[in-house]
Design a protein around this nucleic acid. Structure first.
Lengths: 229, 229
DNA sequence: TCAAACTGTAACACTCTTGTCACAAAAGCA
DNA sequence: TGCTTTTGTGACAAGAGTGTTACAGTTTGA
């Protein structure tokens, strides 16, 4: 999360592999945090707030794919890119890896050079972090740090998806987002979700925003998508 | 480049592969342009202005990687995402593919589902760049980002087709568009609709533009088409 | 472990948009 | 002026897009 030196969280149960990767990542100029199991990985994500995660598939107890799934579920960690590492080369797994939300998938044996290139690629693509932001629109106030939203001073109760959806809208009030763009930003890449799901969550967000009165601030742009204001 | 139906340029020298991909891409709702060699690919990029390119690595004469390199060099085509397709699974190539500028890299044999997901992902990412212009003519203001149109400050209510029609006119005020040209730009390339439909929508656009007063800014060029101003 | 909360999908009703037709109006042309 | 061609427009049925609810499957948090 550091501004100048990106942090990589490396999750790999085999010590030898871990050594090699850690050494090389540091040589590339990254800060490296290591975990040798899924549970520690989940804890370290909170603690270190890494910019990218390199995650081994096969691990005792909590598997890499399970860790990935959990991370992509929580709104705080959803946007952290994950590179999945695996010895399985069958297509089924590759698809499953991506479906779970992994941003990239590397098959063992891989080359260090390639893996480094992919880490750099993910970092390049990662969004500028919107931490500690306080967004306002009309009488709606969203505090990214405390994860709280109020309207006319009254606190609103939003689910994780609704929160991310509203954040997106409030970052650029007035801008029209297509359903696909919203899926990309709010749900994450490579996730197979029906576009109609967006409609449903828009409906839920609307209900939450107008729960204590006030006009519906969301605008439907027929044939295109939605916008705030 | 069409407003609603994204165009995919498919470059693959093997007919069977091309068939399968083309079929699936069309089933996904994309327009598909095909090329079976690198030279044609470069020409078609100009002609079709695709939203994403699926590019086979191995081709006679001009290889995929060479095509990729050239496209990523020109400023006009640099932003078009490229998905590289290859049977080579060796690390060296994968790295080379990504470093040459390919935005994604899929190894054969791949699954159709996975490839489609990747195409969609690239499209989602690429879209936002296109938006964001603000067009003005007389007292009419059209904002592409917010999808709003005002005349003398008053908001106008336009349907999707009317909006696209007006955008087209406002991009080049004064220019006369034939009905066929308008059908091409507003409706899409290969959709069959009667040219008289244009007349009807022009009428609707006129009604919307003059709803709150003001002169009709659209000019009928008898025997030819229509123009703004 | 259990209850509450959240998510994605399907289904249905409803609104808005769209393409076409028919006919009226206007414009060219001799 | 008559006649033909082109354009304008109201009506309408079909279709697409959207709002909403219900529900099953999960996850979360106590």
């Amino acid at each position: 999360m550091s501004a100048d030196q990106p942090t990589v969280l490396l999750v790999e149960d085999e010590p030898a592999q871990r050594e090699v990767l850690s050494y090389n990542l540091e040589a590339e100029g990254f800060r490296v945090a290591c975990a040798d199991n899924g549970e520690d990985a989940l804890l370290l994500v909170e603690e270190e707030q890494p910019d990218v995660i390199v995650l081994d598939w096969m691990m005792p107890n909590l598997s890499g794919i399970e860790v990935c799934r959990r991370l992509k579920m929580r709104s705080q960690t959803r946007s952290v890119p994950i590179i999945m590492l695996s010895a399985r080369s069958e297509e089924v797994d590759r698809v499953r890896g991506l479906e779970t939300g992994a941003d990239d998938y590397v098959v063992k044996p891989y080359s260090i050079v390639e893996l480094m290139a992919r880490v750099r690629a993910q970092l390049r693509r990662a969004r500028p972090a919107a931490a500690g932001l306080r967004l306002e629109f009309d009488d709606i106030v969203l505090d990214a740090e405390t994860h709280r939203v109020t309207r006319a001073g009254a606190p609103l109760k939003l689910g994780p998806t609704e929160f991310r959806l509203l954040s997106t809208f409030m970052e650029k009030p007035g801008r029209v987002w297509s359903r696909d763009q919203l899926l990309d930003r709010v749900w994450g890449r490579d996730i197979y979700v029906d576009t109609r799901t967006v409609d449903v969550h828009i409906g839920r967000l609307r209900k939450a925003l107008t729960a204590h009165g006030g006009a519906d601030p969301l605008r439907t742009v027929r044939g295109t998508g939605y916008a705030l204001g």
